[in-house]
Simulated assay, not measured.
Amino acid sequence: MARILITTDYLTAGDEIDTLLRRHGHEPVYSPYTGPREPADRETLFNGVDGAILASEPVTGNMLTDTARLKVLARSGVGYDSIDVPAATALGIRVCNAPGTNHHSVAELTIGLVIMAARRLAEVTTAVQQGRWPRGAGHELRGSTLGIIGYGPSGRATAQIGAALGMTVQVSTSHPDADDPAVHFTDLDTVIRNADYLSLHTRAGHSTRRLIDGPRLQTMKPTAVLINTARGSLVDEDALAKALRTGTIAGAALDVLENEPLPLNSPLRGLDNLTITSHLAGQTAQARTRAALAAAHAIIDVLAGREPDHPVDR
């Protein structure tokens, strides 16, 4: 019987994934990821297990040494930049993810954050709770420009909703779709410069680390709002905090951060023109089910000697 570690916090004993794994002869064991682990716990996390369904916690090469039984790591999500894939591959450990499972959820939250910013909903609801009754003018989305960086599934879904709302959609991507008449494909700097709402949907990596930095923030409209539901590493948070404080841009909404949860000493704290949510973009009941099933089937396939549907290591 193979032992399967599960760190995704919404997966629990007796649920659909637990039942599926047990039906295939595997034994799930649980160690939910709710924040940074103690060093000793990190070093022994994969001891004695054959596979793991993982949340977005960091998995370093050091954590994978002395794990002779470990055969497969499966992310219950799309991003896998938290895993040292080369180190895993060198040790013969397969790495898989769950693409196409949460892009509708991500797009819906992205547009929700755009609407919040346009109508200043976070500020208004707080004021009402405090006994005030603000009635300042917001902005219609129709006629404004939605800039999108990255045109994978979530970027594409966000573009479709934006276009349906009457927004002009400009996209920077290395994979333009000339058959989409609602989208204008152009270069990165043009998208950043023209956007009223700039939404990030590109992958994290060395080439995109702090893609939105001080100089690029300076080129944005002073009325623009930055939206990030992709990866925290895409934004230089110090530069963003400065831009928000000085009025270089009007606002920002972040669902992802470079360090999660938000550190107490983060420069992003105390900013009235910033909304931060707790990495919720893909966290709908439907997306969770699809992602967890994809991860479980990857575990089952690899341990049965079959090629998984979504490997990221080859």
Rank of each mutant, 00 (worst) to 15 (best):
residue 235 V to F: 02
residue 248 T to G: 15
residue 290 R to I: 14
residue 248 T to Q: 15
residue 258 E to A: 08
residue 208 T to W: 07
residue 208 T to Q: 00
residue 267 P to N: 03
residue 292 A to E: 07
residue 214 G to I: 05
residue 244 L to Q: 09
residue 217 L to V: 07
residue 217 L to Y: 06
residue 232 G to Q: 02
residue 263 P to Y: 01
residue 221 K to M: 05
residue 221 K to Y: 14
residue 222 P to M: 08
residue 241 A to P: 12
residue 288 R to V: 08
residue 266 S to V: 13
residue 281 A to L: 02
residue 208 T to N: 06
residue 283 Q to G: 03
residue 276 I to R: 00
residue 253 A to G: 12
residue 256 V to N: 01
residue 284 T to Q: 13
residue 250 A to Y: 11
residue 227 I to Y: 04
residue 258 E to K: 01
residue 246 T to V: 11
residue 261 P to Q: 08
residue 235 V to C: 09
residue 264 L to Y: 07
residue 281 A to R: 00
residue 242 K to A: 14
residue 269 R to Q: 09
residue 272 D to Q: 08
residue 238 D to V: 04
residue 281 A to T: 02
residue 221 K to G: 12
residue 288 R to D: 07
residue 241 A to K: 08
residue 240 L to C: 08
residue 215 P to A: 06
residue 227 I to R: 00
residue 223 T to F: 12
residue 228 N to R: 05
residue 216 R to E: 10
residue 255 D to A: 02
residue 213 D to W: 02
residue 276 I to S: 04
residue 263 P to R: 04
residue 261 P to F: 11
residue 283 Q to A: 09
residue 274 L to V: 10
residue 228 N to A: 03
residue 269 R to I: 10
residue 278 S to M: 09
residue 274 L to D: 06
residue 283 Q to K: 09
residue 251 G to W: 00
residue 227 I to Q: 09
residue 224 A to W: 00
residue 215 P to K: 01
residue 211 L to E: 06
residue 282 G to D: 03
residue 207 S to C: 03
residue 261 P to E: 07
residue 274 L to Y: 00
residue 276 I to F: 00
residue 256 V to M: 02
residue 205 G to I: 03
residue 200 L to S: 06
residue 247 G to V: 01
residue 254 L to I: 14
residue 219 T to Y: 12
residue 217 L to S: 13
residue 252 A to C: 14
residue 244 L to H: 11
residue 207 S to Y: 11
residue 276 I to H: 04
residue 263 P to T: 08
residue 238 D to S: 09
residue 255 D to I: 03
residue 238 D to W: 01
residue 253 A to N: 05
residue 237 E to C: 03
residue 278 S to V: 11
residue 234 L to T: 01
residue 274 L to N: 05
residue 260 E to H: 12
residue 237 E to R: 04
residue 240 L to T: 00
residue 268 L to I: 10
residue 224 A to N: 15
residue 220 M to K: 08
residue 228 N to T: 02
residue 232 G to S: 13
residue 214 G to R: 02
residue 238 D to P: 12
residue 243 A to R: 00
residue 282 G to I: 03
residue 267 P to E: 07
residue 226 L to Y: 06
residue 293 L to P: 01
residue 294 A to N: 04
residue 228 N to H: 07
residue 200 L to T: 05
